[in-house]
Design a protein around this nucleic acid. Structure first.
Lengths: 332, 332
DNA sequence: CAATGTAATGTAACCGGTTACATAAACACA
DNA sequence: TGTGTTTATGTAACCGGTTACATTACATTG
C-alpha cells in the first residue's frame, strides 16, 4: 500500500508538504507542488480515507432505515436521498429493516459508534430511545413520522390528502366507501383514516367501521381485503386504499369477481407510483413529491450535523396533489 | 466522547486490559473483567468504530452499484444483498448510478480508498478499468454481466430463458412476434435477443427485424414501443418484452388502442416482479430468484475479500422459470 | 544594519483503538 | 530453594493521515 510517507520520500519533502499539496495547494510553492504531484502520480497514491475519516472524526456516510425497499414509493424516496447526499459529498448506508426494531437499533448504533454521521428513518420509530444520558445522534424522520418526534421531520399532510381523496369519491356520489388501511399503530394510517372521517363527517355521513379492512401496504393484502369487502351482502361502491400497491391488489380482486372498475366499483390509491398511470384502469391517487422528501431529509440532517442553530426543530410538510384517473367514476 | 482511556482510568487498569476484556474476555481474570465491564457501563462506552476500522484496515462495508433502484427487480436484488451482508456483519453503501460511468467510477473509488472492502456491480461495466498497475479491488458482477468479466459473476442464462418464452408463444400459434428490447449495448439484451432468434430458427421462421423496438426498461418506453408496433399495417400477434415494466406499459397501450390482451394480442414479460401477478391480465413472464442473486453476490465477494483461493474465477448461472399467466393466449 | 514580517517547509503530536513484547506474580516440579 | 512455565497485566509502537508549532530563508522597513 502506498502511503503519504512513500510519496514524501519520492518527492523528497515532508509528509506535511504532501498533505498540503493535496488539500491546500496554494500555500505550497509551485516547484514543490509539481514535484509532489509527480510523485503522487508515479506512486499511484490515493489517500486512505479511513485515516482521513478517523482523523477528522467524520465518515461522510448517512444511515438510511427503510421499512422495505420493495415498496416503490420508498424506492423513489431513497433515490432522492441518494442523489442529494451524493451532491453534498455523502454516501448512504442502506438498511432494509422490514420493520424490525432490533435491526433498526443495530444500524442506528453505527451512528453512535461513528461509522456514520447521521441517520434518516422512514418509519415512525425512534431507534435511539434506549440511549440514556448521552447526546442524541443526528437524525431526521421522514415519510412516516412520529407524533412527538425528537428530531426534525418531513411528511405529507396525510389527513388533508385523505380528505381530498374522500371528497372526490363523495362528489361522484359514493356514500358507502370501503377503506383498506395500512399497518395498525402507524401514525400515517391513523392520519389518513382521520382525513377520511373528516370528509364523511363534513358530508353529514356516519362512518361504517365494518367497511375498514386491515392491510400491510402489499398487493396481496389489498387483494385479500377487497375480497372481504366484496363478500359482503352490501359491498361498498368505492374503495379507498392507503397506498397504490394495495389498490392494485384490490383492483385485481374486483376483476376476478367479474366486476368492472370504475363502472361497478371505484378504487382510489395513494402515492402515485409509476405503475399507477400504467395499470388498467389507471389509478386515481395522491401524488407525493417522493424524491423531494429525500432531498429535504438530507438537507435537514446535514444542517444538524454541521450544527446550524435553527435546524433542530424543523418540521416540513410536503405538498400533495390529487390525481384523478380512470379508476374512479360515478356511483351506480 | 468517552474513549478507551477514560474507561481504563475508571477501572484502574491499562487500555490493553479494557480492549482485551471486550474482545477476548477469556484471557482476563474474572475480577478484572467485572471491574472493567462496570466501568464500560458507567461510562456508557462504545468503541469508536472508525478507529477499529482504521487499525484493522477493514470497514466491513460493501459498495453496491445499481443502475436504478426504481426498478422493482433490482430492488429485490438489493434486498437480497442487504440481507446477506447484514447476516455476515457487513453494511452496504448504495449508489443509484443511473448508468452514469463517472458516478460508478467515483463510488468504485471508495473501495480503492478503503471506505469499503468490496463492490457489487449490477450493470455490465467495469469501473476499475482505468486502474493501471494496481491490484484489482474485490468486485463481483451480478445480473447484467460483462462478457469477459475480470471478476466472479452471477447471472441468468438469459438466452435460454428468452428462448423458453418464445417457444411458449410459438406453441400458441404466434408467428409474428414483436420484441421490445432493453438498452442497446447491453449483453443482457443481446442474449435475450439471441434466445428469441434461437427459438424462431428452431421453428424454421426467419426473424423480421422491423418488429424489434428499442426500449429502456421503463413503462413509458414499453408504452411507446407498443404504439409503434400497433401502428403498423401488419402488427404482430404477440409481443415479447425484455422486462415486466415495459410489458405493463405495452399492455396499457394495447388497451388504449381498444384491443384486448390476450384475445387480440399476447404479451410476455421478464423478471416476474410483484405486480406481474396483480396486473390485469396477469403477466406471463420469466421468474428469477432475485434475492438469491444478492445472496450469491455477497457470498462470492466475501470469498474474495477473505481471499479464499478458488473464489476469483467463479461464474454462477441462476435458474429461471417460465410462469404462464393470463397475458398470453392462442394466436388469432 | 538590525529588527520585523512573510512565505515555505519540517517536526512531531494526535485521533482511538489493537497487539507484540515486556514484566511480574503465582505455581509446578526436581 | 532454584528453575521453568503459566497466567495476568502493563507499556508503547503502530495504523496514515492532519495540523499546531517550530524553523529557516529571504524580503521589507526604519
Amino acid at each position: 500500500m502506498t502511503n503519504i510517507r512513500k510519496v514524501a520520500e519520492l518527492a523528497d519533502v515532508s509528509v506535511a508538504t504532501v498533505s498540503r499539496t493535496l488539500k491546500t495547494p496554494d500555500i505550497v510553492s509551485p516547484e514543490t507542488r509539481d514535484r509532489v504531484l509527480a510523485a503522487v502520480e508515479k506512486a499511484g497514491y490515493r489517500p486512505n480515507m479511513m485515516a482521513v475519516q478517523f482523523r477528522s472524526q467524520r465518515t461522510r456516510n448517512l444511515v438510511v432505515l427503510v421499512p422495505t425497499i420493495a415498496n416503490t414509493f420508498f424506492a423513489r424516496v431513497i433515490g432522492g436521498i441518494q442523489e442529494a447526499a451524493q451532491r453534498r459529498g455523502y454516501g448512504i448506508l442502506l438498511c432494509n429493516t422490514l420493520g424490525d426494531e432490533r435491526t433498526e437499533r443495530a444500524y442506528a448504533g453505527m451512528v453512535s459508534t461513528r461509522q456514520a454521521d447521521g441517520l434518516i428513518q422512514l418509519r415512525a420509530y425512534d431507534p435511539f430511545t434506549t440511549l440514556n444520558g448521552q447526546e442524541r445522534p443526528p437524525m431526521v424522520n421522514v415519510c412516516e413520522v412520529l407524533d412527538e418526534a425528537p428530531c426534525p421531520t418531513v411528511k405529507l399532510d396525510n389527513r388533508a390528502a385523505a380528505r381530498a381523496v374522500t371528497e372526490h369519491l363523495l362528489s361522484l356520489g359514493h356514500h358507502r366507501i370501503g377503506m383498506i388501511k395500512g399497518p395498525r399503530n402507524s401514525p400515517l394510517t391513523r392520519d389518513r383514516l382521520l382525513g377520511f372521517q373528516d370528509a364523511l363527517a363534513a358530508a353529514g355521513l356516519t362512518p361504517d367501521k365494518s367497511l375498514w379492512c386491515p392491510g400491510d401496504f402489499t398487493p396481496p393484502s389489498g387483494h385479500r381485503a377487497a375480497g372481504d369487502l366484496l363478500a359482503r351482502t352490501d359491498p361498498p361502491t368505492a374503495i379507498f386504499c392507503e397506498n397504490d400497491e394495495m389498490a392494485m391488489g384490490a383492483m385485481r380482486r374486483i376483476k376476478e369477481a367479474g366486476l368492472r372498475v370504475p363502472e361497478d366499483i371505484s378504487v382510489a390509491g395513494f402515492d402515485d407510483i409509476a405503475f399507477a398511470s400504467y395499470c388498467a384502469p389507471s389509478l386515481t391517487t395522491i401524488a407525493q413529491p417522493a424524491e423531494d422528501f429525500g432531498h429535504e431529509a438530507v438537507s435537514l440532517l446535514l444542517d444538524i450535523i454541521d450544527d446550524r442553530d435553527d435546524a433542530a426543530d424543523q418540521h416540513r410538510i410536503m405538498p400533495f396533489e390529487l390525481v384523478v384517473r380512470e379508476s374512479t367514476g360515478l356511483a351506480v
